[in-house]
Amino acid sequence: MKVVFALLLCALCFLGLDAQCPEPNTLKDFEGNKICARMFEHSNYYYEQSCGGEYIDAYPNEDVPIIPSSWNNRISSLVVNKLCSLTVWSRTKKNGKKKKFSSGIVYRLKDVQQGLFGNWDNDISAYYCVC
């Protein structure tokens, strides 16, 4: 039984290695400029299928009180660069609920609690990213 459990645990670890999400310390745009955070439209119960679809980049010290309308309430997963933090709001002009994400990968914003009953999936309307 212990062997089966160990093999299952190893398999789950290897699944995480194939994740679509980029590593935080590798976030750069096409010109090689550092990106503070990358926010994706898709997430998935299986982490290796998260961070899919289109994405929007937040650059260091970028303050966006009104996210472009095509991205309003559309973000489902995100990656924050090393030594950076991303603060998001649930309403435009930095109103509503507020959440700060540190460096790392958030595979599913659906798993991030917002208040008593909500979550952050498809609920970002403003952001501020700092490195």
Rank of each mutant, 00 (worst) to 15 (best):
D121G: 11
L86G: 02
T92N: 09
E54S: 15
F117T: 12
S103D: 14
C51W: 00
S43F: 04
E41K: 13
F30E: 15
W120T: 06
L83H: 14
D123F: 14
I124Q: 01
D121S: 14
D57E: 14
I105Q: 09
T26Y: 03
L15F: 13
Q114R: 15
N61V: 03
S70K: 15
D123L: 06
L8S: 07
S85Y: 11
V112D: 03
N25I: 00
W120K: 06
D123M: 10
L8P: 00
F117V: 10
N72I: 11
G53I: 14
S85F: 05
N33L: 06
N44H: 15
I124H: 02
S70Y: 07
E23Y: 02
L27F: 03
C129G: 06
Y127R: 07
F30Q: 14
I75C: 11
Y59W: 13
Q114I: 01
F14V: 15
C13T: 05
T87Y: 03
K110E: 11
A19F: 02
G96H: 07
G32V: 07
V4S: 10
C129A: 10
N25E: 13
F14I: 14
I56S: 00
N73K: 09
P68Y: 15
A19C: 09
L9F: 14
S90A: 15
V88M: 05
E48I: 03
Y59K: 13
P65C: 13
D57K: 01
A37K: 01
I56L: 09
N81P: 00
C36T: 08
V4M: 04
G104D: 04
D121R: 08
Y107I: 05
V88D: 00
V130T: 13
A6S: 08
D111W: 04
S77G: 12
L116Y: 05
G32S: 08
G118I: 00
K34I: 04
A11W: 07
L15T: 04
W89C: 01
I124N: 00
V88A: 02
L27Y: 04
W89Q: 00
